[in-house]
Structure formats: structure tokens, C-alpha cells
Design a binder for these strands. Structure first.
Lengths: 186, 186
DNA sequence: TGCCAAAACTAATACCATTAGTTATTGTTA
DNA sequence: TAACAATAACTAATGGTATTAGTTTTGGCA
């Protein structure tokens, strides 16, 4: 009556991520995940401990993939172009994985150690990318915070249709990055 | 048995806003609002049509107050300082009204006409603030989008503890704004 | 004073996450 | 191969959510 499917924590996580990206993070419920996997909601508890734990896992995967997207986009590029490449890697990830991206910030458990470390890798990647400007440690902190504000703000507003008519968004992004980079020079 | 309280749509809205700012927007439910007003949840439907309609109203109020906060902070200031003042007005509002600020973006009904117009007033305020730079219309669009990205990104990351240890946040904000302003100059 | 509309109520529906307890399946071991 | 143990599915139930329907109470006005 209930033939076992080859289910695992991984498969559940993947299903949740697909729902988040395709239908929005608010559609990620035990019911929708179970339906996608052809099981009843309580059966999910054989693989995950709770919906909120699953969302924490989503956040972790999201942060790791965000890192990969940034890093892959930067390979073999240097100087200002490297900062631009990192930024486009960020934006591309946010655009291609809207639900997963959103989950990285709506993290229910922000003080999770794994999440902290994964997020820190991104910060370190950004720090490393601006090393050739020779900022002081404190200036580095400010500059990276600004970069992240710009990237998250743009991604977030774009997704929420916050810019009104979605015209010339790529052009705006390039202009904004150029503006910020210019301001970074002393 | 049920003496009438002087309830109104306004009072319901105020209760919801207080819950959002004090306990977080996710705590804004028919149950919590009703409890705060000493009535049963279904009685709320005598004043509002649904929770989602109420949240749309919250978004509108939030955007209007955000506008006021920015405008009030700018009064009598000109030049670069005026852009800084507008920005601090934005940040102050986001900090002082975290729940209401969040509701402005999590707007369930983004194509609401009133909301669009209120949001447009903010954009126009920003456009007017950078008029003395003599940008082209298109440059204005990009610059204002960048400013909004910076402001929303910073506010949002700060609230989500996205910056890690919350050290020197005001200093970072000033540094970032200075950086962006410097980049705006040609 | 009596009536009516507004605003409260209770009860019910349909969703949600989660837990407890049960059954079925699968892999391992005697 | 037969039996057992662990795993993973199930059903049923609990308490939470928003919402609707139908009922009662209240307070102001004719």
C-alpha cells in the first residue's frame, strides 16, 4: 500500500528549494513539499525535524551557492573588473534562485554556526577582492558593508518590483557599481 | 456582556502597527490584534476586510511615514548634506519602526494605486534632492535606484543582523554614503 | 419607548505544523 | 530461507491559523 520511494533529507531539501524558486518561499509548507514527493505530510518527519529546521538548511545551501556563483564569476579577473564580476555573480544568483536567495536572509536561526561560517566566506571573498585598494582594516569593513548593502538592496528591490517599471535594470546596475567603485578611490 | 469599545479601522491599524514594531511583523495575526483590542478575532471583520487588506494598509502608512521622516530630516539643508539628511531620515525610520518598515516591502498588493503613488513621492523627493548635480533623466533614474538600493540594503541587513557583530554601524553608514556621493561626481 | 443598524458574539470550515500510535516494507541475521 | 529489527510510510488527533455564517447584544435615533 505504501511502497517506499528512495527518499532522503537531500531529496526533501531539493523539493523545498524547487518550490521556493518556482512558486515563492511562502509556498514552502509541509503540505506542498509532501505533495511534490507523493507522500503525506507527517511522513516528512522521518527525514527532517521540522519545517523551520528545513528552512535553516535552505539558508545554508543558499549561502553556499551564492558564494559559488560569486567565485565562479570572478575567476581569472583582476582589478575593478573583479569587483564587478563578483557583483554580477551575486545578482545572477539572486535572479536565478529568487526563493533560495530569499531564504538566506529570512533565516530563522541566524546564530547557526554553519551559516555564520558560510556567510563569512562571502565576506572574506569580498574583502580579498578589494585588497589591492590598500584600505585600512576599518575601511575594508565599511567598504564591504557598502558593497553588500548595494547588492542586497538592488536584488531585493528588483525582486519586489520596488523600482516600478522594470526598465533598464542591467544598465542601472552597471551604473550603480561604477558609481560606487569610483567613490572608493581616494 | 459585550460592551462596545470605541473601535474603528484606525484603531485596528494602530494595534497592528504596534505589534509589528514591538514584536515583529510575523506576530501580526488576527489573534494577536484581537487580543490587544480585547475582542474575539471574528469581530475584527466588522472593521477590516481581511488580514491581507490590513497589511496593505500598513504598507501604505509605512511608506507615508517613511516619506515624512525623510522630508522632515532634510528641511533647510542643501547640497550633498541634503542627500545625507534624506538618507539618515530613511535609516532612522527603518530603525525606529522595524515592523512597519518591513511591511512596506512585503506588500501583498504591490500594484495598489495608492501605494504606488506614495512610493512615487519618495522617488520624486530623491530626484529633487539630486537635481543640483544636473544629471540627465536617465542618469537620475540610475542614481536614485542606487541610493535606494544602498538605503534599503543597509537597513535590511542591519535589521537581519546581516553584518555580523553590530559594531560601528553608524560610522559604516556615513562612510558608505560619502563613498556613493563621491562616486556621483563627474 | 421602540426599533434598527452596528458591532460584538459563538460555531463551524478549511487550512497549517506537529505528535502519537500503527502498519507495512526492506535489509540483515540466524 | 525464515524471522527479526529498523525504517518509512500511514491514519488519527491536537492546537494553531484565517475566514464565513448565523445569532445576540448594544446604543443611538425616530
Amino acid at each position: 500500500m505504501s511502497p517506499r520511494i528512495g527518499l532522503s533529507k537531500q531529496k526533501v531539501l531539493e523539493a523545498a528549494i524547487n518550490i521556493a524558486d518556482d512558486e515563492g518561499i511562502e509556498k514552502v509548507t509541509m503540505a506542498t513539499i509532501a505533495k511534490k514527493l507523493n507522500i503525506k505530510p507527517p511522513s516528512l518527519y522521518n527525514h527532517i525535524s521540522s519545517l523551520s529546521a528545513l528552512k535553516t538548511e535552505m539558508a545554508l545551501v543558499g549561502i553556499q551557492q551564492l558564494y559559488s556563483s560569486m567565485k565562479a564569476n570572478m575567476e581569472g579577473i583582476s582589478g575593478d573588473e573583479r569587483v564587478i564580476a563578483l557583483s554580477k555573480g551575486y545578482l545572477n544568483f539572486a535572479r536565478n534562485h529568487p526563493g533560495l536567495y530569499e531564504s538566506t536572509l529570512a533565516a530563522p536561526n541566524a546564530q547557526d554556526k554553519e551559516i555564520y561560517e558560510a556567510a563569512n566566506k562571502i565576506v572574506q571573498l569580498a574583502v580579498q577582492t578589494i585588497k589591492h585598494y590598500n584600505f585600512t582594516k576599518e575601511e575594508e569593513l565599511h567598504v564591504v558593508r557598502g558593497l553588500r548593502s548595494l547588492l542586497h538592496g538592488f536584488s531585493s528591490l528588483e525582486k519586489a518590483n520596488g523600482f516600478g517599471i522594470p526598465i533598464k535594470l542591467n544598465h542601472s546596475f552597471d551604473y550603480i557599481m561604477t558609481t560606487y567603485l569610483k567613490g572608493m578611490k581616494r
